[in-house]
């Protein structure tokens, strides 16, 4: 939410800039360490579990519509992502990937959920933690599969000429162990931040403009344009949130796959 500079006068400055960008992400409700973001994080966990619980509480041979929908989602993660990307042994990682996908998806969808309107994945804590977790998972998978040879394969993919080994080694080390988790986290985080900022600014300034029409006159009609644009971006964000959850899960699977099969 936009936080006001108390002396801001909408009649003069048209829109009140927040004191700094953090205020778009700091939520007002706060009890000790439990602010709205923390509550939403637990709400996301609860929603994921509730969806799975109601889908598989009494699984039926001929699934209900709800179970069929969840089935399709689960089958997609298991068959297309876990087994499709990693291979037959990917089934082991399917529960992790499913948890990742559903948790990030619900967290992302909070961005466009009316009355919530705040993606928990737009706080760096969550994407960073999940990216580091994926990092741990793929490094551990590599070590368990290949032993210490994993680090050799990690530094030098097969077929690298000896002369290039120092250079390639440094590039691979940085790209695999540093850039991967960083880009994974930042991609999700930045997409959701951008979406959230756009939605907040357009929808709230739209409403503010429209509400200010009696005071500022025709200038306030711009509010309809901002609000309309905000709604259009709201639809676009639906695509982005689902896509980013998918990309996060997919890349996690790809990283695990490269740990298990160094030849690729």
């Amino acid at each position: 939410m936009i936080l006001a500079v108390p002396e801001c006068n909408v009649a003069e400055v048209t829109i009140c800039a927040p004191a700094n960008v953090n205020e778009l992400f700091e939520l007002p409700v706060r009890i000790g360490q439990i602010n709205r973001t923390v509550l939403l994080i637990f709400l996301a966990a609860f929603i994921v579990m509730a969806v799975l619980y109601f889908a598989y509480r009494r699984p039926r041979l001929v699934p209900s519509k709800f179970q069929a929908a969840v089935d399709a989602l689960v089958a997609f993660i298991r068959d297309e992502v876990a087994v499709g990307i990693i291979g037959p042994e990917g089934i082991k990682y399917a529960p992790y990937l499913l948890a990742l996908f559903l948790f990030v998806l619900v967290g992302n969808l909070f961005e466009i959920t009316p009355l919530v309107n705040f993606p928990i994945t737009s706080r760096i804590a969550l994407p960073a933690f999940l990216a580091i977790l994926t990092w741990v998972v793929f490094v551990v998978a590599g070590i368990r599969k290949q032993g210490l040879a994993y680090f050799g394969h990690l530094l030098w993919p097969p077929g690298v000429p000896t002369a290039l080994k120092p250079l390639v080694g440094v590039i691979e080390l940085v790209s695999t162990l540093l850039v991967r988790p960083f880009s994974l986290a930042v991609r999700l985080f930045a997409n959701l931040v951008a979406g959230h900022v756009m939605l907040v600014l357009l929808l709230v300034s739209g409403v503010a403009f429209i509400a200010a029409i009696p005071e500022v006159g025709a200038k306030g009609l711009f509010g309809f344009a901002w609000f309309g644009l905000g709604l259009a971006i709201w639809v676009f964000e639906l695509l982005v949130t689902v896509l980013q959850a998918y990309i996060f899960t997919l890349l996690s699977a790809v990283y695990i796959q490269t740990s298990l099969h160094p030849e690729h």
């Binding site: 936009i2 936080l3 006001a4 909408v10 007002p28 360490q33 973001t37 994080i41 960073a128 999940l130």
Partner: peptide, 29 residues
């Protein structure tokens, strides 16, 4: 417009704070 615009929190910070995980959120996550 002013009710939409809610009171600022006590924290003064730069935009960089956005890139640093908040401890409570990290633990919750």
């Amino acid at each position: 417009a002013q009710t939409l615009i809610l009171a600022a929190e006590d924290k003064e910070g730069s935009g960089l704070d956005l890139l640093l995980p908040a401890t409570n959120e990290l633990i919750a996550g």
